[in-house]
């Protein structure tokens, strides 16, 4: 069972306090979008064996949504960051690259 650090309230809590919210940084396609873009927005989700950018909510805690980057294969966590951004912070991307260089993840 995962141990998750909430970047909003600072709790390091077990997975049962949190709710998973699927892939992060999906761009909403609204009225006026093409069928292809809209279908992709609704249905296309990554399911990597390796590094995954995800949304989580501290459902039983502070109630806040946030992002977590982890390996679905080894469950290594590369970092968490708040929900109100549209791309991951550089230091987390650097950590992912370092883990790739060391062969820990694909």
């Amino acid at each position: 069972m995962l141990l998750i650090d909430c970047p909003c309230c600072g709790v390091s809590g077990e997975e049962t306090e949190f709710a998973a919210g699927g892939e992060a940084h999906i761009v909403r396609a609204g009225p006026g979008s093409s069928d292809a873009d809209f279908a992709s927005y609704l249905f296309d989700r990554k399911n990597p064996r390796g590094v995954h950018f995800e949304r989580w909510r501290h459902a039983f805690g502070c109630g806040k949504w946030f992002h977590m980057v982890r390996s679905t294969q080894t469950l290594e966590v590369f970092g968490v960051y708040k929900a109100d951004v549209t791309s991951p912070p550089q230091d987390i991307l650097d950590r992912v690259e370092a883990a790739r260089a060391e062969g820990r993840v694909k």
């Binding site: 909003c8 600072g10 109630g63 806040k64």
Partner: peptide, 16 residues
């Protein structure tokens, strides 16, 4: 403070 309680004020969330 974050995740603290005084006698009559409870910190519930970052904005609550």
């Amino acid at each position: 403070d974050v995740r603290k309680a005084t006698e009559n004020v409870l910190w519930m969330s970052t904005d609550e």
